[in-house]
Design a protein around this nucleic acid. Structure first.
Lengths: 198, 198
DNA sequence: ACAGAAAGCGGAGGACCCTCCGCCACGAAT
DNA sequence: ATTCGTGGCGGAGGGTCCTCCGCTTTCTGT
């Protein structure tokens, strides 16, 4: 459009075509806002239309609803996993763990509309997850390890199991309940992570 | 069809019409088998067709997918809740609790195809649940109370929170994982139910 | 510059979801 | 036995999901 040959970004990732990349990002942006705003179910055809592309294009970039949702979810996850070092620097591990749960919970609360899709994707393994879940598990693993060294969190728990439990809390909690209830469940979970006296 | 006047059951529940009742039961039976057998998603239109009724009839009896699923689920739940007294009679409460989780888990494993629908219904409150969930919570409550009296389970936990956690374990567990993983998660949960030493 | 290849696009199409409404037949009342 | 009211029935219809395929646009080689 502008210059004669290639002005877009010659040595970028996979999408060679410039427009393709743009479409993808556009789609992602529209989807993010749609999922964040929507109360009820979100129509993919609506997202495509709003992004000014055909439904086929949407499905080319994100082969399943799950893929799209995960892409949106994943894009904002860095804030959540990134704050672990800070938390660990400022608080003892067992406190950091609790605070991080809270943090993650707040994040997920804004993603209610995606939860079902995410669950399905994770549980079915259809979301070949070297992606999201492992990042979460890594964050938890870091806190856990730190707590194990300090002796304030038990050392014999797999981080991925804790991921499951936290995820379980989200999944079994309604959008209306939110605060108190989720807090109690997290407290319960944290009790389970105390070092065994035996 | 057989006798001239009313041979069906004159003073039964709501459905006055004999055929209506039969349709309902038929639908339920087909649905049960469909959900139990199916790998992928289950088509309601398929169920209706297989039961020899129109889709409208299915929706008349079960206004939403959730209602149908819950009806199927609920029908078999008595075995699970009913075994609590036996368990408590033969084992100390904390052991009974663990065994019951296992029992419930085995039951749910055969209901994977319904899980998403059930979750949505429960969490959204659309399934005005004087029904299923409360029966589960009552069962848990019984064990919990017995454990509190014996001093082997903590007394300061709400039964409904335990329901949530167990449900969470189911929801965050894949059909493939099943055994080991669910066991570990239940162990974790049980640790959280130990009496606090503080 | 030009032509050929193939990446990328859009939307028609088949399946399913749930709603809505006109018709049937069951059963009661006469 | 006949008639009437109404509970119950079936399926058409509008919306969404995802797949598939023919056309367009961009890039590459000469």
């Amino acid at each position: 459009m502008a210059s004669p040959s290639s002005s877009e970004s010659p040595a970028a990732g996979r999408p060679v075509r410039a427009h393709a990349r743009r479409n993808r990002e556009n789609l992602l942006a529209v989807a993010r806002s749609a999922f964040a705003t929507a109360d009820g179910p979100v129509s993919l055809e609506g997202i495509a239309k709003q992004a000014g592309v055909g439904i086929g294009t949407l499905y080319r970039h994100f082969p399943t609803r799950e893929a799209l949702v995960e892409a949106v979810y994943s894009a904002e996850l860095d804030d959540v996993t990134g704050c672990v070092p800070d938390l660990l620097a400022e608080h003892p591990p067992e406190v950091a763990m609790r605070m991080w749960m809270e943090r993650y919970g707040a994040f997920v609360s804004t993603k209610r509309a995606m939860l079902d899709t995410l669950r399905t994707g994770w549980v079915s393994g259809r979301l070949a997850t070297p992606t999201t879940r492992e990042r979460i598990t890594a964050a938890i693993g870091a806190i856990l390890e730190s707590g194990a060294r300090a002796g304030t969190l038990r050392a014999d728990v797999e981080a991925d199991d804790v991921t499951s439990m936290i995820l379980g809390v989200f999944l079994s909690t309604a959008a209306g309940d939110t605060w108190e209830r989720m807090d109690r469940l997290f407290d319960l979970l944290l009790d389970a992570l105390q070092p065994r006296q035996g």
